[in-house]
Amino acid sequence: MQDNLFDLIIIGAGPAGITGAVYAARKGLNFLVLTGDIGGQAAWSSDIENYTGYQFVSGAELTIKFEEHMKKYNIDIRENEPAGELSREGDIVLVKTAKTEYAAKSVVIASGKQSKELGVPGEKEFRNKGLAYCATCDGPLFAGKDVAVIGGGNSALDAALQLIKIAKKIFIVNISPELGGDAVMRDKVIKSGKVIVMNNTRVTGVLGDKFVSGISVSNKEGERELAVEGVFVEIGLIPNSDFAADIEKNDQGEIKVNCRNETNVKGVFAAGDVTDVPEKQIIIAAGEGSKAVLTASRYLAIQE
């Protein structure tokens, strides 16, 4: 454990964490940011057209802008060091990572969400060997090949739309009776003539030798195999909140916060997509991040 007692630790560096960090720097707090990556889910967005001031920006570009904004304030950001465990001892909050343990008077959790996994045999082995969670990034590797998109909501439709331009044939494997998402996107997908939609169908395994060669699926007609070289998993997101064992969450694992971003634990605040705030948007996450840090800084002032 380190001797240094921070005023604040921010966990996560997506829109909420980064905005919070800029506010914390301007408040003159002694703080650091612990995170696995920079940009969070926003980095993976292909086209962002609703972040005020930018009529059009890609997730990658916005992430670079965020990073530059942080650099201006010389913020101590530890990338590749996500929080592993959070606990409270008296008035101090302890955050454990794979490298060490940090102590702070307050914490803002802004760890966001990550792609939900299928939880079927073969998924882990074939990750990045034909199985991917980002069609925007890895789609071009599957030019002229047959692929499968797993899921039936907007993110699955978005992935399918991107793959239509690249792949030969696309199976959409959807567990629900029909496709969800926006009607405009559904129509585009169906009209492309390249897509085969399989509703009421569950993926039971990812198959292959060194790389993916197919998936096994099951529906009321029984079990069958689809020959595909690419599998894109788009079945939604889960909050990165496991490390915060003592913090109250809703049934989806989102951290419960009030309108001041306070959790059920004193000195622990939360912001952005990891919380139960209604609507998950980049601009909302950014606003929530600033709010959480302002509440934390008020909390620190009262403690002194």
Partner: peptide, 13 residues
């Protein structure tokens, strides 16, 4: 890399 992958953009930056 690909032009649309965020970590390719960041790696090059």
């Amino acid at each position: 890399g690909t032009p649309t992958c965020p970590f390719c953009v960041r790696a090059k930056k």
